[in-house]
């Protein structure tokens, strides 16, 4: 079971072990991580699951595909950067065990 670690703006960490194949959004919503609402149900349609991927993990987690729906939505999300992703578009695998996702300031 890979673990995804959500980091709140104040530094609080939420490590969550999930089954391979679970999205980071589901991991957060099902475990009540504050700041990840996931309003659209993980359909890449609301941007309420915006996270910043820790720089060290960018190469493995990958960027949002330029011009795709995810990138389209991210451009309107507050505090969006090059490291921004929508957590519903990140599927956890053993390869991502230990992935660190920071929750943008003010998402709640």
């Amino acid at each position: 079971m890979p673990t995804v670690i959500f980091i709140e703006p104040d530094g609080a960490e939420y490590p969550i072990a999930v089954k391979s194949g679970t999205t980071a959004r589901d991991a957060a919503v099902n475990n009540g991580v504050p700041g990840i609402d996931g309003d659209c149900g993980g359909e890449c349609a609301c941007a309420t699951c915006h996270v910043h991927v820790d720089a060290a993990w960018m190469s493995r987690a990958g960027m949002a595909e330029p011009g795709g729906m995810e990138a389209n939505l991210l451009q309107f999300a507050e505090g969006s950067t090059e490291n921004s992703r929508l957590a519903c578009q990140i599927t956890m695998t053993d390869d991502l065990d230990g992935l660190m996702l920071r929750i943008p300031d003010g998402q709640h």
Partner: peptide, 11 residues
């Protein structure tokens, strides 16, 4: 309860 359509979805 947040899973509703009132705000629309997408861009």
């Amino acid at each position: 309860s947040r899973h509703h359509l009132s705000f629309g979805f997408g861009v």
